[in-house]
Computed example of a mutant assay.
Amino acid sequence: MSITDTAQLATARRLVVKVGSALLVERDAPRTDWLASLAADLAMLRANGVEVIVVSSGAIALGAARLGLPRGGRGSLADAQAAASVGQVQLARLWSEALGAHGLVAAQILVTIGDLEDRRRYLNASATLERLVEARAVPVVNENDSVATEEIRFGDNDRLAARVAQAAGADAVLLLSDVDGLYDRSPLLPGATLIERVAGVTPDIIAMADGGSSSGLGSGGMLAKLQAARIAERAGIAMVIANGTGQSPIAALLAGGRGTLFVPQADASARKAWLGGRLAPAGVITVDAGCVAALGKGASLLAPGMTEVHGDFARGDLVAMHGPQGERLGQGLVEYTGAECRAILGLKQDEQAARLGYAPRAAVIHRDHMVRE
């Protein structure tokens, strides 16, 4: 279904609800009363026929409190991994008890970025989510921070929630946070205005983002939420940012509470949506102005338009495309290795064979394996 109003979240077929660390943990202790009220909201949605998936932060904050680690467990990668290992046990128990009080079964799923970046593993995760929902369990998903590294991780559960929504075929994502939504400037500044509806995450919208996490507990911020919105809108999924700090936050939102709705902008094929949502390109190809114009008309990326190649990538890897000023144009699956791309940089097709030693392929990145920003 197409969701064009926050009240329609109550009629979604499948909804992903993301819960931030600042909502679950306060002064090193879990907010059990608040979690109980949220569980009641989720049970209400389930009773109304909405299939619910939860993406929950909080493991690092909970584990850091239990271990007595400084800076909420984020002082170092080792601290974060240790805190996550301890906190994930507590987090799973909290969700199991809160949902169990309403007769709901919680199912824990821990994922790494590779589980959703690799196509086969993505499809496996999708099948698992589907089966759990069919069995009327409530999947509770979190990044597996105990093994994730700084270089290979989502880094925030906002983007993870959007990717989970893709994998689960959800209609909408609700990001519950400690902010009301997207403001036209920092909400701490005088005159800041809440943007209630966004029809496409443009550069002007991105410019409104405040990159920090106001609580200091989480790893996201408004920029991460806007990146999540871009993933969602490309897949035809609505997304809402709303303040979840009060009791029964979903019921409050449905009753007319404030928030920002990001309206879906496209309904890409499943493969294109997966490709557009991938977050870890293996390299960057910079192109000239003529190539930018051609790409804008739906063309493939060809060697004559390339001006720079960065990264040691293999054929079939995900590679980002940048314009002459460094602006991001999109990303796609490359047909050559990084070394081969550098070898044919700027060459016309009849010159490429001599450099490569074999007949060149039709494109460096074919338009069928490419998504534009």
Score class of each variant (00 low, 15 high):
Leu38Ser: 11
Glu327Gly: 12
Gly100Glu: 03
Ala172Met: 00
Met44Gly: 09
Pro324Ala: 03
Trp274Ser: 07
Gly75Cys: 07
Asp267Ser: 09
Gly316Met: 00
Thr193Trp: 02
Gly330Glu: 00
Gln349Trp: 05
Leu77Pro: 13
Pro249Ser: 01
Glu130Gly: 06
Pro139Thr: 06
Leu347Pro: 15
His102Lys: 10
Leu62Gly: 10
Leu42Ser: 05
Ala78Gln: 12
Thr286His: 11
Arg315Lys: 09
Gln265His: 07
Gly316Val: 06
Gln352Asn: 04
Met306Cys: 12
Ala343Asp: 02
Ala266Val: 06
Gly100Tyr: 05
Ala339Pro: 09
Gly283Lys: 01
Pro30Cys: 00
Ser126Trp: 08
Ala289Ile: 11
Gly283Gln: 02
Gln227Pro: 03
Ile285His: 03
Asp28His: 15
Ala229Cys: 11
Asp171Met: 02
Leu275Met: 07
Ala209Ile: 01
Arg120His: 14
Ala168Gln: 08
Gly298Thr: 03
Gln81Cys: 02
Ala137Val: 14
Met370Pro: 15
Asp178Lys: 13
Asp28Val: 09
Leu188Asn: 15
Ala78Trp: 01
Leu301Val: 13
Pro324Asp: 01
Glu233Cys: 14
Val89Cys: 07
Thr337Met: 02
Ser248Ala: 14
Ile231Asn: 04
Ala363Arg: 13
Ala255Ser: 10
Pro249Asn: 03
Leu188Trp: 10
Glu26Thr: 11
Thr260Asn: 08
Glu51Trp: 08
Ala299Ser: 15
Val50Arg: 10
Tyr122Pro: 09
Ala339Gln: 15
Ala289Asn: 12
Ala228Glu: 04
Arg342Phe: 00
Thr193Asp: 09
Val309Cys: 08
Lys18Ala: 06
Ile60Trp: 04
Thr32Pro: 05
Ala224Glu: 00
Gly63Ser: 04
Val55Gln: 07
Ala266Pro: 10
Glu351Ile: 07
Gln81Thr: 04
Leu23Phe: 00
Ser214Ile: 11
Ile365Tyr: 06
Val198Trp: 04
Val240Arg: 08
Arg197Ala: 03
Leu345Cys: 13
Leu24Gln: 01
Gly63Val: 09
Gly68Pro: 14
Val133Met: 10
Gly63Thr: 00
